[in-house]
Design a protein around this nucleic acid. Structure first.
Length: 158
DNA sequence: GTTAGGG
DNA sequence: CCCTAAC
């Protein structure tokens, strides 16, 4: 038997794993302007760093996160970080309560954001107060068990 | 330049 | 991702 374990390196690089090639396609719009379309698919590593940065400094401090976690990334400005964070929030609110019996065709396309990351995002959003008042009201009166997430792996920030 | 919101 | 507005 051959024990050939595939070292699925999930982007072991930091953020410089991105190709140095600039994927910029200039498409002229009808309104009067050249729209520069970049194509920079956020990888898991990027998402993790973003979440870690928010967990360390807080949501809204994209400038600091960009200076520390994304210091080697000339692109990815404050706008990009905020955009990704919003996208993560949406995914963490619709993919967390599911993940049980959805259509799983054996394999996803290169893993679209693991639930592990989404769990961190949801907890962070709860801390930073980015949870919408909706969806949280799914409790039926009569549950004295204060079941809190067990993700409290923080030494104690804030 | 950054944050925040919308397309 | 890109653009706009306000700070």
């Amino acid at each position: 038997m051959k024990i050939v374990e595939l070292e699925n390196d999930i982007e072991v690089n930091d953020c410089s794993e991105d190709n140095s090639d600039d994927n910029v396609v200039t498409v002229p719009t009808q309104k009067g302007g050249m729209r520069r379309k970049h194509h920079r698919p956020w990888t898991i590593n990027e998402v993790v760093k973003l979440v870690e940065g928010v967990a360390r400094y807080g949501a809204g401090r994209w400038s600091e996160i960009k200076r520390l976690a994304f210091s080697s990334c000339p692109y990815r400005t404050s706008v990009d970080l905020k955009d990704k964070w919003r996208n993560l929030l949406k995914a963490s609110f619709v993919q967390l309560p599911a993940e049980k019996g959805i259509l799983n065709s054996r394999k996803q396309a290169s893993v679209p954001i693991p639930a592990a990351i989404l769990s961190r995002v949801r907890e962070l959003a709860d801390m930073q107060g980015q949870i919408p008042p909706v969806l949280s009201a799914c409790k039926s009166s009569g549950h004295s068990s204060s079941d809190r997430n067990v993700h409290e792996a923080r030494s104690g920030f804030l």
